[in-house]
Amino acid sequence: MKNLKFLDNEFFKEAGEMAHFTARFFRELSKPKQEYEEFINQCFWIGYKTLTLVGITGFIMGLVLTIQSRPTLVEFGAESLLPSMVSVSLVREIAPVITALICAGKIGSGLGAELGSMKVTEQIDAMEVSGTNPFKYLVVTRVLAATLMVPILSSLANAISLYGGFLGVNIRGEVSWSLYWFQVFKVLSFGDVLPSLIKTFFFGFAIGIVGCYKGFSSQKGTEGVGRSATTAVIVASLMVFIIDLIAVQITDLLGLT
């Protein structure tokens, strides 16, 4: 019982500190003099440097999902519905969530390790002494970059995965390029694309906040840096699933499913 009580206390303490960290982010964001150069630099490292991994994963997702779905549809004589089914599955759920999980692993751990190493080597303290606002320079720019780049990466993953689906359809069948895309866009609606895009902004924000918080609160030297990177991935991945669950419930209440 004592251990459970200790875990509960730690959980609520961590949740409160993260909420305070998030509130500080919005407070610093509202202040003038934005660090645009650092923001662009972080967009490059977070977005461009993750593009190859996201693209390869998206292509494999589309290809594998199409190949695995074909036998079931063939049994019911509905093979012609394969492009439609794959497109809805990818755009609504699979591509955004898998992309966010990849970003949680790569970006979340990177932010936790980078800021954690700066914390334990007292570089952040040195920035404060020199008159630089380390929170605005390090945290605000990285969270904004993650919030912007994850939706872009998710959109690219959608396109690449749908192309992988086209190749998967033509492995054992023959569907023309124009017919495939006609079937894809015929079933996709505003209610499929918009909620999928909106929730990726929340995915990116959660990944950025968690990674920066874990790095900024890192302690106990190099051991703490490793722990910050690991817990950043775990918590960010959990946040992605929670946000996705909430988004699904909201879209269902709004009748967009």
Rank of each mutant, 00 (worst) to 15 (best):
E128G: 05
E28P: 06
S228A: 15
G191T: 09
A104T: 04
F182L: 05
I107G: 03
V184R: 00
G16E: 05
V233N: 04
Q42D: 00
E35K: 01
V140M: 07
M239P: 02
L53E: 06
T230I: 02
T200G: 12
I160W: 13
Y36L: 12
I60R: 01
Q68V: 15
L197K: 03
K136A: 00
N158E: 02
V248R: 10
M85E: 09
S87D: 06
I60N: 04
F44T: 04
L115P: 09
L162A: 03
A104V: 01
L73N: 03
K106D: 00
D125H: 07
V74C: 02
M118S: 11
C43S: 10
V54W: 11
S217Q: 15
F25N: 00
L63G: 10
S117N: 10
L101G: 02
S30N: 09
F76P: 00
S196W: 08
I56T: 14
N41C: 05
G204H: 14
V139K: 12
D252P: 00
S89C: 11
I107L: 04
K49W: 07
P195V: 02
V175Q: 06
V193D: 07
S161W: 07
A206K: 08
G165F: 09
I246N: 03
V150H: 01
L254R: 07
I60P: 05
A126V: 09
T200R: 00
H20W: 02
K199D: 12
L162C: 04
T121F: 03
G215A: 06
F44K: 08
V248N: 12
G62F: 09
A104D: 00
L167R: 07
S130H: 03
Y48L: 15
K186S: 14
L138R: 01
E37F: 10
V184D: 10
E122A: 09
T72K: 08
L4A: 14
L153D: 01
F216M: 12
T147V: 11
E93L: 10
Y180W: 08
S89V: 08
K49L: 12
E17L: 07
G62L: 08
V175D: 01
A19M: 11
L4H: 03
L156T: 13
V86E: 08
E10Q: 15
I124R: 12
T132H: 03
F25E: 02
T52F: 15
V97D: 07
